[in-house]
Design a protein around this nucleic acid. Structure first.
Lengths: 218, 218
DNA sequence: GTCTATACTCAGATAGAC
DNA sequence: GTCTATCTGAGTATAGAC
């Protein structure tokens, strides 16, 4: 109708309070059911082709029924990712973590929709107000922390240089995994786990090598 | 109005013909202007907060006026990325390419919206029908090709193993660059170019090393 | 070829009844 | 806790003026 109004998009786009719903047993169960179904349908059809109304219908709920449990669509999407992380928790020592890591990467190959959702949410997280921003911040911090703990288990007293190098390599590994999956989305022939394994092997060689070099220098 | 219809989302979502518009000088100029303005506003505010109507208004055009030049919003978004690639074309030999590469990564640090757009389109490209799918396919192929050409300039007769290793490392480099930028979107303190430089240095060392090893084995 | 006006459909959000 | 009804704004499609 009116054409002039252009600059009113600065509204409160994302709610602040979060998930105080589901306090009763039934609500908790329904909430979990919605997440499960949403995870499946978004994973299969991608989040762009899927409306909340569709998800609601699959849950035998109305749109408002779904919205009762989540602050917004974006919030729901992020909760899906959180649920996946809970499923894919990485634990154990150095070597076991790497194996688990590669195993997860392999499994991701069966869920392109989820990977696409992950990537999309990462892009959305540029906006610090977006619920994905907090999620990714926590996620990266958590992973870096877990990795460092396992590192200290096998090398209790690393030099500053060694520790710094390890941190850079952890970040690099994460980055490469994300990037390879991004390429894989476009071209499914890209071997995510395989390429990743080459890199991890290279890191091991390099860390051993620099240790030798240090010994040789003495 | 009607509630029942849920499964009619399988319509023709993306047009097929492309950009036969702009045949006249004026049209060509306007098309370029739209892209420039869209690049700026999407780059600054991100594509999620920006509607085509807003872009149109900034171009002193109606929404339909913009749509005259592009098949869809998604098409426009991809054209923005194509335009950026034209600006950032990588040329020259081995070393110069790496410098240029790092330089571009540095410049991307000033355009988070564009990086976010890139990542979002990558996610959208899971759908082979989406205009971004063709874009990324071409982009990756082109970059891999350029890199390989420069590799042959300095090493005209590599062994199969060397060439294969080089290809994997090129892909890995691309992946890491994408992944680091993804992390940087979430946490701007991540040093994309710096971390990337460490990896590139590591590759150089590794390639030199394996050459020595081969010589030692003989 | 360039562009406007208008109408259409669908999305997510919200208010209030039950 | 869930629904119906309604709102706003998005992208899209078409007819036709210049």
């Amino acid at each position: 109708m009116v054409v002039g109004l252009v600059n009113d998009s600065e509204k409160c786009r994302y709610s602040i309070n979060m998930a105080t719903r589901g306090s009763y047993a039934k609500g908790i169960a329904k909430r979990a059911e919605i997440l499960d179904i949403a995870l499946e349908v978004f994973g299969k059809e991608g989040y762009r082709g899927t409306s909340l109304r569709k998800v609601a219908h699959l849950c035998n709920l109305s749109l408002a029924g779904v919205m009762h449990y989540f602050d917004s669509k974006e919030d729901l999407l992020v909760q899906i990712l959180r649920k996946r992380d809970l499923r894919d928790e990485v634990t154990g020592d150095d070597v076991k973590q790497q194996d688990k890591f590669l195993e997860i990467l392999g499994r991701n190959g069966e869920e392109p929709g989820l990977v696409a959702l992950y990537v999309t949410m990462a892009a959305a997280a540029v906006d610090p107000e977006h619920p994905a921003a907090a999620y990714f911040k926590e996620r990266y911090e958590h992973i870096l922390e877990i990795a460092e703990e396992s590192y200290f288990q096998t090398r209790p007293t690393p030099s500053d240089e060694e520790l710094s190098y390890f941190r850079i390599m952890t970040r690099s590994s994460l980055a490469m995994a994300d990037g390879l999956q991004l390429q894989w989305l476009v071209d499914p022939s890209v071997d995510v786990a395989g390429t990743m394994a080459v890199f991890l092997e290279q890191i091991r060689t390099f860390m051993a090598m620099s240790a030798e070099q240090r010994n040789a220098d003495q």
